[in-house]
Design a protein around this nucleic acid. Structure first.
Lengths: 256, 256
DNA sequence: CGCGATTTGTGCACGTCTTCACAAGCGCCT
DNA sequence: AGGCGCTTGTGAAGACGTGCACAAATCGCG
């Protein structure tokens, strides 16, 4: 049964077999494994143990093994995983065997940076179009691509098959852009605008919000500060102040 | 033990109250609630029901109520939540009552955009320093801040109390930068570099990887394509998959 | 003043994810 | 060939997160 088959070379793009049902948590980690595997491959490793790979990916080894087992993994007991084979496997499952076209809407501050980010190209994606609603930005050339007006989206979609839309507009414009993307058939959206998008069933949206990340970190800072400020006396000195919190304690005496 | 105390009530200056132990999942959603609340406040709402707020934040209402209950919430049955009070509550818990200083390391493509991103300032953070290892970038002025050399980090840290470090360098430099940040006392790091950071216990790291987000979307695109491509025409042509997941009959009730 | 409409807060059951611990399998060495 | 050490794959248990459904609490109104 272990026929040597290139998972990622179906030749036909239409006849795609059903994928295994992967837990979302597993899917979210596969790209990390993939990156670690590429590093290992570049370093000349032919095989790697779950221990080694998990360390490189920043997870524990049991989790890694279970994740890989979900995709019918090809490890060898006593040896480990074949690096090249595993890369193929994961790239196939993630659908990276074809280079997917990305439309980036909003070439402001962030969009500009994204347009120039080479991490996209190097990991299986191709920015197929830059779009903006601001006429004064249309025509500008960034990284070899000319910015077009967002209303040209249907034309762009007709030229190539857009797989993913990236929204890097202000929050106020995001929903409308999302609607336009959906209208031309895009079913996956990466949203950098700080707002909730409503999309029809079947469309996937992932959100990245830089400020939210900072706020989560802020919480942990706050918590750590409140812990280190606890003297060895065991606390309980904290008197419950009824009626909510009146004062803003801007004093946190974080250790330098 | 287990005296029920008011979690949100800060004691007097000096006596830092212990924060309630919030589930991580809850913490991750609080910023979203906060943003929705600010929108509501701007729109003139004084109170909001869990139904209304949850819709604005993109979650279901039971989850929202449970989340808020964890911080000893102050809703009124039959009425809803007081918007202003809830904002105060959440901002306190997240530690946003003080404006935290952020050091941004790496002013390349992405770092440049982050330096100009006004979402930081508008949501409780202040970029206190821009740093880079490239001498040719040192001295450049971005958004009113002069780029300094990363080796000046100790000096910067002495000038102000840095709360959070943001790494926007290439992957190769990230670990070293992280070490430098930790060395000057930073205990929270937001990492945009595509690599795993190893940091001592007590230091929190959150990672944002744009390519990973795209790859996750790519998986779902792949899966959706494999589902819609299943009509009887294909016949048995899909046995070609390597062992694990040939003919996995995914019966998802997904419509279109 | 009491009643009904409304909405919060939460106990409980369920599903998902994580972690442990170990049998099964593989290669190597004697 | 046989045994030994190493590593995978996985069952089972536990931790965590989610969603339902309803009692408790509050307001407005007649």
């Amino acid at each position: 049964m272990s026929q040597h088959r290139h998972p990622g070379a179906p030749g036909r793009a239409g006849a795609v077999p059903a994928l295994p049902d992967l837990p979302e948590a597993t899917v979210a980690r596969l790209p990390e494994y993939l990156r670690a595997l590429h590093n290992l491959a570049d370093a000349g490793h032919e095989t790697v143990s779950s221990e080694g790979l998990s360390a490189a990916a920043g997870v524990n080894s049991a989790k890694l093994r279970k994740d890989l087992s979900h995709l019918g993994s090809y490890g060898t007991r006593g040896v480990g995983y074949d690096v090249a084979l595993l890369i193929e496997q994961i790239e196939y499952v993630l659908g990276l065997t074809q280079r997917r076209a990305v439309a980036l809407v909003g070439v402001g501050n962030l969009g500009h940076a994204l347009a120039g980010y080479d991490g996209f190209a190097s990991r299986g994606f191709r920015i197929a179009a830059l779009l903006d609603a601001d006429p004064s930005r249309v025509g500008e050339e960034i990284n070899g691509l000319v910015v077009r007006h967002v209303d040209d989206l249907p034309t762009v979609a007709a030229e190539e098959s857009l797989a993913i839309g990236v929204i890097a507009t202000p929050a106020g414009a995001a929903q409308q852009v999302a609607d336009q993307l959906v209208a031309v058939g895009v079913t996956s959206i990466l949203n950098f605008a700080p707002c909730v998008l409503s999309v029809p069933e079947g469309v996937d949206v992932r959100k990245v919000d830089l400020a939210i990340e900072l706020q989560i970190l802020s919480f942990h800072e706050h918590r750590k500060a409140s812990l280190t400020a606890l003297p060895a006396t065991g606390g309980t000195a904290l008197t419950a102040l009824p009626g909510g919190f009146a004062a803003t304690d801007t004093q946190e005496a974080i250790g330098t």
